[in-house]
């Protein structure tokens, strides 16, 4: 978080650089079946973020040493395409991608009924084709829809959204400038049917009251995104 207090990101009427109010989401659209060769797939366009997710499996888990006798292994990979960012992203090993893959897997493992498929593996591939801000949230949301689309049993879908703070104002769903110059970022993974959490990160500086506001924004936004996810699944493939 930069914390550049002198960059004016929100005016006195609470209107943000892209014209949104503090609690507004960027436009979100979701489609299923966008990768025909996959067992399940989804595309999420969120602002100018563009993510696709593919699911393969359940399949026999290789290599054997990562196999689990009592459940399936969720093999999640989050990756950014080389042209997805302003400066080209070098392909290959990347600590940030590894961390996001891991927390995404941790979040999804909390809902996928892995006990149904002992010794198997379910592959979840998340590719960010165009990144604006909040790609981990977009990726996790896309992965949830792709898993549901593949017919993988799960107790709920994970909806992921982030809120943060710019110029001392708490706002929902940071865009790129706000993410660069903002003072805090709170991404959460929410189970919409119970309001429980499976993913939580935060960095920056928030007072207790600001934190509560950001939390509430996320909860509200999650319900909106959840409806778009459900509509995408019920509306049939692209």
């Amino acid at each position: 978080m930069g914390g550049y207090g002198d960059v004016q990101m929100i005016d006195e009427n609470g209107i943000r650089v892209d014209g949104r109010g503090p609690g507004d989401l960027r436009p979100v659209s979701i489609e299923t079946g966008v990768i025909p060769v996959a067992d399940g797939s989804a595309r999420v366009i969120w602002g100018t973020n563009h993510a696709v997710a593919a699911v393969y499996g359940p399949m026999e888990c290789h290599p054997r040493k990562i196999q689990r006798q009592d459940r399936a292994v969720l093999d999640v990979r989050y990756n950014m395409a080389p042209f997805s960012t302003t400066d080209r992203m070098r392909p290959g090993f990347n600590r940030r991608s590894r961390e996001i893959s891991k927390v995404t897997a941790d979040a999804l493992e909390s809902v996928v009924l892995l006990e149904m498929y002992p010794r198997c593996k379910v592959r979840v591939e998340i590719e960010i084709l165009c990144a604006e801000a909040g790609t981990r949230c977009v990726g996790l949301t896309a992965a949830s829809v792709a898993l549901a689309h593949a017919g993988i049993p799960m107790t709920d879908m994970v909806v992921s959204v982030a809120s943060g703070k710019i110029n001392d104002v708490v706002v929902c769903d940071l865009n790129k400038e706000e993410d660069n110059y903002g003072e805090a970022d709170l991404p959460m993974g929410i189970l919409p049917n119970s309001g429980e959490l499976v993913f939580l990160q935060m960095d920056g500086d928030l007072s207790q009251a600001e934190f509560q506001q950001a939390w509430d924004y996320n909860m509200e936004a999650a319900m909106v995104v959840h409806q778009i996810m459900v509509d995408a699944l019920k509306g049939g493939d692209a």
């Binding site: 966008v34 990768i35 025909p36 060769v37 100018t48 563009h50 395409a81 080389p82 042209f83 997805s84 960012t85 302003t86 400066d87 080209r88 084709l129 165009c130 990144a131 604006e132």
Partner: peptide, 25 residues
């Protein structure tokens, strides 16, 4: 098709789908 690339294209041939993106250094 992709905002952050300086040039981009998407091609679909049957069920094969690819993207190309141009960046400059």
């Amino acid at each position: 098709v992709l905002r952050n690339a300086e040039g981009s294209a998407k091609v679909r041939i049957g069920d094969t789908i690819v993207y190309a993106g141009v960046k400059f250094q």
